[in-house]
Design a protein around this nucleic acid. Sequence first.
RNA 1: GGGGCUGUAGCUCAGGUUGGUUAGAGCGCACGCCUGAUAAGCGUGAGGUCGGUGGUUCAAUUCCACCCAGCCCCA
Length: 1080
Amino acid sequence: MAQFDTPDQLSLPDLEEDVLDWWNSHDIFERSIEEREGQPTYTFYEGPPTANGKPGIHHVLARAIKDIFCRYKTMQGYQVARKAGWDTHGLPVEIEVEEELGLETRAEVEEYGIEKYNAACRESVLEYKDLWDRLTQRMGYWVDLDDPYVTFETDYIETVWWLLKQIEAEDLLYKGHKIQWYSPGSHTVLSSHEVSLGYEETQDPSVYIRFPVAGEDDTYFLAWTTTPWTLISNTALAVGPDLTYVKIHHDDPHQGAETLILAEALLDDVIDEDYTVEETFTGEELIGQRYEPVYDYFTDRATPGEEAWYVLGADVVSTEEGTGVVHMAPAFGEEDYGVAQDEGLPLFNPIDKDGEFTDEAPLVEGMWFKDADKVITDDLKGRGRLYKHETYLHNYPHDWRKGTPLMSYPVESWFIETTKLKDRMVELNDTINWQPEAIGEGRFGEWLENNVDWALSRRRYWGTPLPVWESDKEDSDYYEVIGSVEELREKCGDQLPEDDDEIDLHRPFVDELTWEGPDGGTMRRVPDLIDVWFDSGAMPYAQWHYPFENEEEFEANFPADFIAEGVDQTRGWFYSLHAIATLVFDDVAYENVVVNGLVLDEDGNKMSKSKGNTVEPFRVIDDYGADVVRWFMMSNAPPWESIRFSERGLRDLRRTFFGTLENVYRFFATYANIDGFRYQKDRMPVEERPELDQWIISRLHTTTQTVEEALEDYDPTTAARAVEAFVEELSNWHLRRSRSRFWASKKGEQDGQPGQGGTVAAAKKEAAYQTVYECLEATAKLMSPIAPFFGEWLYRTLTEVTEGETESVHLASFPDVREAERDEALERRMGLARTIASSTLSLRNQAEINVRQPLPRILVVTGTGVPEADVEQVRDVILDEVNVKDIEYVEHTSEVVSRSAKPDFSRLGPRLGDLVKDVNQKVRSLDDDVIDEYVETGTLTLTVDGEEVELGPDDLIIQSEGIEGWLVEQEGDVTVALDTEITPELRAEGLAREVVKRIQNLRKDAGFAVTDRIEVAYDGTDRIAEAVAAHGDWIRNETLALELQPSNAPTGDAVDTFEIRDERLTIGVRRVAADETVRR
RNA sequence: GGGGCUGUAGCUCAGGUUGGUUAGAGCGCACGCCUGAUAAGCGUGAGGUCGGUGGUUCAAUUCCACCCAGCCCCA
């Protein structure tokens, strides 16, 4: 006969390896998709990782989230295909390769050869793919690793090109300038990633400069800057239109009397001398005023339509620091540039690619730009233009490799005019379900609101080339965007290999492709690559090589139902997916998105290699099991918050949740095997089962509903915690209270008296087995999305015996919520029972009477939340749990109950206002008599502060505090007193229990099996002897003793003597026969 | 420098959206129970100026402002 497996303490890592092998050999993952053929599709997009570094513990978090919802939706009946993907382009790869090859500058790379360089990148990018695959499999993340999309593949690039062509067709592609951080030290533009690597605390000059107001003597705009070297390129001053400005008069120690204009709010910060305010106006009024430039090198350069050296209004101006008058040098600042674009200001750039001043600026010609600060400052000082000179400590970006300061610099770039579709992007974003919501509205929403055009160009080597060819004819701005390989063949087929498979669309090969343009020039590719984020944002289409192939797959899988990535992807993948989908398809790319936070170390610090606090994912999985790690990450905190990763947490979780569940199963299996339970009988109607069973079944359905709702809401934390709570209730209340049932009927059979009692016992036992079985199987399903291995093990271990619906839990369907089997009132009653039991146990503790000693009764005060009828229904459970014979009820309003009253503030507060405080005082000191009267009549009049206050029913909250003359425990609404009087009968019963305990211990010490029959001989003091005589049948029954005989000198396989309270007992036990009713 | 998230018991977190006078859970700890779930199980208990200050209010952990700390994103 099939038996439930009863392993020793489980090793979760070993168990998981076994499950993995079984999954592989039975193609469970493949089948979980195939068997859902024809069912509705649930689409998940894998955000591609870059496999040029080793995976870390945070990847386990991200991948667990992805896995959970895909498994869950599969169990809900959807077909969930999951294609893996690799992000292969981009700067991190290049940096890695440059380090390997020892290349530092662009010149060195180009000398090394782009072809060889890119070959090295291609090699490097999948260096750790095997490691990633291994982690993916080991942690139980089901994704199709055999057929991933790879962003460097020709098909993928072709789709990217096609997308750009569509964008071009809508006239959204254009060439412009973008201010970027340029490193004169290594002659290259740096990506934002590189820039952020190089921020350093820097001391810079902080200078206040006088700009003479045109047409007014000794009157100046006072502007502030920390980059004096940009003053040569000044073209305008900016003020905040809504800010308040003042014109002040003061005596400058060096200049004498003069008039300055600056923001009122900053007056005292800036002006050191006494001054008088002469005039006050808004920034608006200053706009348009002209001033004299501090350097005249460009005065003849301003072309018509490009006015310069006047005051303009800009919202970016603040009164946080400086003077409220901002010096604008559009060549050297992103904000300045933006304003200059709007205003049509000219752009003066006297600095060359090496970061040195050209002959356009004679004062500092040939000088390194930062070195010019001092010279310019001195020069201005000498000319009386410098009001004040201080130093300023701030973060300024530097070249992360060379340490030299960066400068903003306008660089030619290709853009997508995303701003044109901003409103649509915002609108579509409102339809996306963000988890947590705040990121969708906040970080992402705001980012969309402040959308700027997408600068596509990257001056790098390893990436998708921008498919734009420009005519090299002078003054021609003709260009073509290539959207497919076929199109490329039409243009220059002769330069391409005949076989499509041999085409490489990377640099340097595409750079060499040229053709004649319609204007007679030669069409040459622009040297740019495109931003790698465009690559990844193209994955919904490019993973299928759409529209060149797989049209159906694409359409069935767009948009995604669900994606999940880290919060750092807000401006990365979340944006690029959204932008491309909006641009090309006027749709969202994903409908639900779960954002995961960071994984911090135990102390809440960021994990980093340099701190040495990183956690090796393989090690913790090998030590604790992937399920424990996954469960911890979901249950400990919502995954979108930063999670503190602690091994202690893993250990606790292993022991508490998984250990408890494991024990519940083991307990169940042990007895089910003895009784040959295999769930072969019909399912017993729940209403025919004992109330305890009805209760846990109801809890199961409530839990199932909670889990289902939580997972539908993409909230794995609530789901995990609900399962944890359920397992606790199953073990600590249902199973514990059911223990006797699991062997009760055994004794019936042994007595050879099936009769009425035996049948009832058997039915109760069957109910217990069915109930626990159902709870365990459902728990296996409920937990399996988060803990796929343990869920699988539990499910299979159970269903191998009972022949369940499917071979694997991951092929099964999620449990149903059976409303008919839910009973909220019962759940509430059982909660009440647990509270009463807990209070009673507390009282026993205080009275120092152990639970083996029966006590006559408890008194329960009935009242709000404690109706007698409810308690009566759970009476047996309470009595058994606390070993008390009876429950008596004391009316809430009875005279023996002492009470206290407090105001119901939510009622009285609004009505009485200030008086409520004094009323409170009075009410709390009310005598019992007065409270009694109030309880009776429902009214009370108090005199407070000379005022009469009428209190009506419900204005006061009455609580029972105690019962006169009793030791009382109070917990919420529940008030319990314990009668500790021990009658001789009760004492005898208590002693009989003690005897049973000793016999059981002896049996165990003697090494008998639990089902062995024994003979017992005993010798005890009078009270013991009386107790044994009175409860002989019961003792024999409990201990499976065929004989229970007094003896002067007990003998047997084991003999021992005990002191019990003031009594003495000697027992001998002898094994008579192994239990023959047990078939093995 | 800007924006965001977080701050509740020794630890990990609920609660708080709707302000109500006794703020909860689990783990850990202490004490005890159980000994037919035993390398298990159970109970009881101690433990908190709800990050700080100020404000609104009869009443603030909850609402508002500012500040502090940690982290993230951006510059």
